[in-house]
């Protein structure tokens, strides 16, 4: 496994001049696991998309270093496994075909044995040749884990990892996480208590915003304490 280092410096994202979040700073390397929490609309998904390189930050820098070499943005996807409700598989193809196309588009050799192993792990092996269209939402979610793990990425990003999963599916996800934890970087976007118990660090976007706001207020109130009549205007 390659050694990876992911760094976020003062990352800010705006949509139509609305600041979603600001001054996000953290560093992650192999063996680190982190969860990003916050209420709906706090920007969890936006932040993980920025980390994955599919969205660019308004300000700030994301750097991904692999084996000491800084990666270009267009190479990020090679090191990232991403599971999220907004990432869909191709309905008209079977699970097996989906994985085959994914491997080919990535430009890697399709390892049928490893694909079978993955499909077996997520309990889709018996349905591997059925079109994804016929799958339940839980099965589709499980297939996304095969999509994320197929290229053996160093960074695993799971946005709402439990979505649509039953108890058994959730257990599989946790075992995948525990297994990869020692060597990989794991990033979760979730509010689920049980998910949070599987990571070492938690970043709460709402608390961060509150903190930044109160710091700002303190600074501005410090300024307004200076004798000045201009303020009233």
């Amino acid at each position: 496994m390659n050694s990876v280092h992911l760094q976020l410096e003062n990352v800010r994202k705006e949509f139509s001049r609305r600041i979603i979040f600001d001054k996000i700073n953290f560093e992650l390397t192999n063996g680190n696991s982190i969860a990003i929490t916050g209420i709906n609309g706090s920007g969890k998904s936006t932040l993980v998309k920025i980390i994955a390189g599919i969205l660019s930050p308004t300000r700030g820098i994301v750097t991904l270093t692999v084996n000491g070499k800084e990666m270009k943005l267009e190479q990020y996807h090679n090191y990232i496994g991403f599971v999220a409700p907004y990432i869909q598989m191709y309905d008209e193809f079977s699970a097996y075909e989906n994985l085959k196309f994914f491997a080919r588009i990535r430009g890697m050799h399709f390892d049928a044995g490893y694909a079978d192993q993955l499909l077996d792990r997520i309990v889709l092996y018996s349905r591997r040749n059925d079109a994804v269209r016929t799958y339940s939402s839980g099965m589709k979610q499980r297939l996304k884990y095969a999509f994320a793990l197929l290229h053996k990425p160093e960074i695993l990003i799971f946005d709402e990892p439990r979505a649509n999963l039953d108890r058994h599916g959730i257990a599989t996800v946790y075992s995948i996480m525990e297994e990869n934890k020692p060597e990989s970087v794991i990033i979760l976007a979730t509010n689920d208590e049980e998910d949070l118990s599987h990571v070492e660090t938690i970043i709460n976007l709402d608390e961060l915003k509150e903190q930044q706001k109160s710091e700002k207020q303190m600074r501005s109130s410090a300024r307004s304490k200076q004798p000045s009549t201009e303020v009233a205007k």
């Binding site: 994955a52 599919i54 267009e74 996807h77 991403f82 907004y86 990432i87 869909q88 191709y90 999509f147």
Partner: peptide, 16 residues
Amino acid sequence: ERGTTMTLQLLAQPAI
């Protein structure tokens, strides 16, 4: 429409 744009973004660089 199918929501597979991001799937593709995660698979290969834009030029491809």
